[in-house]
Design a protein around this nucleic acid. Structure first.
Length: 202
DNA sequence: GACTCGATCGGCT
DNA sequence: GCCGATCGAGTCT
């Protein structure tokens, strides 16, 4: 399994969001390894996007790692309960990122279920089928904010190629406050994959 | 220093 | 379908 190189991330958030589908998140915790295939992403392309934390170049302590060079992690807390994992894209100071919304467990699903505190009979699609769930399943929190995704305890590696006909495109979720930007088609899902979060695109 | 609200989720109606 | 949980950044005073 090959770790994605810097060139992969140094492109626009929209392109990287599409290409991340099918790739593998590899989370190392001590001796344990958890692997999950990315099946849903959203692009937050930077200063000109009202839904993006870096809108109009806003740069604060919370979103500082969004301005790192492509290939770093941006993790933030939302609603006081959950974390969201992003991959920073573009060049340093761009403020672009891709939100990783859902993944399919490939290895270590039992540990992910324990992390989530799930009953054994809960459907597989509910283990990491949403940004908050995914972070909890993979034990991702603020301590991973700003780390490199090319080495260390959280990396993204090559995976299967998803054909463009198998990619469903939809508006982003939960960004109604952003006005017209809420309608931009920047959400990308693997068509028909049961791990994709709700609302399911057509 | 006080107030507001968010890139969510799960339980209850 | 609706609502509450719970926290910290952001904004305004």
């Amino acid at each position: 399994m090959k770790v994605l190189d810097q060139g992969f991330y140094r492109r626009s958030a929209e392109v990287v969001a599409k290409d991340l589908l099918g790739k593998s998140i590899v989370r190392k915790i001590g001796r344990k390894i958890l692997i999950a295939k990315i099946v849903e992403t959203e692009a937050y392309p930077g200063a000109h996007d009202a839904a993006c934390h870096a809108f109009e170049g806003r740069r604060t302590r919370r979103n500082e790692s969004m301005f790192l060079d492509g290939g770093h992690a941006y993790v933030f807390m939302i609603y006081g309960f959950y974390f969201c994992l992003n991959a920073v894209t573009g060049a340093r100071d761009d403020g672009q990122a891709v939100l990783i919304r859902a993944a399919e467990p490939l290895e270590g699903e039992t540990i992910m279920r324990v992390n989530r505190g799930l009953a054994p009979k809960v459907r597989p699609g509910d283990v990491a089928g949403g940004p908050g769930k995914l972070c909890k399943a993979l034990a991702i929190d603020k301590t991973l904010d700003g780390v490199s995704l090319r080495q260390g305890s959280l990396v993204i590696a090559d995976g299967e190629k998803v054909a463009s006909k198998d990619i469903a495109i939809a508006p982003r979720v939960g960004v109604d406050y952003a006005g017209d930007a809420a309608y931009l088609p920047l959400r990308f899902c693997v068509r028909g994959n049961p791990h994709v979060s709700k609302p399911r695109p057509a």
